[in-house]
Write a protein that binds this DNA or RNA. Sequence first.
DNA 1: GTTAGTGCAAACGTTTTGCACGCTA
DNA 2: TAGCGTGCAAAACGTTTGCACTAAC
Lengths: 146, 146
Amino acid sequence: MEKVSLQDVQKQLKEHGLKATPQRLAIYHALVQRHDHPTAEQVYALIHKQNPGISLGTVYKTMDSLVDAGLASKVITSDGVLRFDGKTHTHGHLHCTKTGRIMDFEDEELEALLTDYFQRKKLPNFVIDHFQVHVTGQIPDSRPKS
Amino acid sequence: MEKVSLQDVQKQLKEHGLKATPQRLAIYHALVQRHDHPTAEQVYALIHKQNPGISLGTVYKTMDSLVDAGLASKVITSDGVLRFDGKTHTHGHLHCTKTGRIMDFEDEELEALLTDYFQRKKLPNFVIDHFQVHVTGQIPDSRPKS
DNA sequence: GTTAGTGCAAACGTTTTGCACGCTA
DNA sequence: TAGCGTGCAAAACGTTTGCACTAAC
């Protein structure tokens, strides 16, 4: 994953007309640090330690701003809970149904395969924005959540 | 899509230890008739016309039963709403961000491509159950929802 | 007759909203 | 200092649950 410095974030926020508040920096920082895909609650818990005066509502609002600014993206998993992803480029997800964990899955070969496929295969009456592969399965020997 | 008769449904329900109630038949019938992926509300509205004495809660419960019985599956889209799918075999989805519609996308070539890919590419510490391709984009000239 | 399924309404958890206040630029 | 962003709490939303009643087997 490409590391983004706080200065970069600050710059990117401003470029998109967003003010670089401490909350936004903290939230975005937490987001890029974690490679799993935290829920709003998890992000909240994460930054709450170092930044107690922050509200869950702000996490949601900030997330929306980040997504609008193109700095993050949303993922919804089969449990119906919104999760956030600190990267915006195309990548797949591995979703473990036993633990609920979601891991990134990036593979150049797969991406090339699909890009090539969709370039050849024109879909009738549909303009493709992006595509992603979602793999469901299990991590062996993992412990079920809850 | 393989057409399933009501007799088949009735049989399948019984095989899975489920009673074949009129509600279940109506709900499943509505599900296979529509190729888009209705939400619980939509299924409810659909069957309510012909079957007024049915409750939204029953739609949810019945959906769960159908999914357990392997007659349907759940899909969650980026709007965070649960949707139901009258088919259970692997297939992709086209998701129009303008209208919110989800359409099935089935293509043998793509499926073969991916099956082959994942057979070659062993994922470390992950046992694949199934995979699907989710394509996001827009239907040209469509009217935005709401 | 027994058990599973239904309907209703209340409860639940997540996400959104409204508004007064505070802080960034 | 002008306006965006925040915090709080309430509301909204989709979904689940509990329970008494009904219907399928």
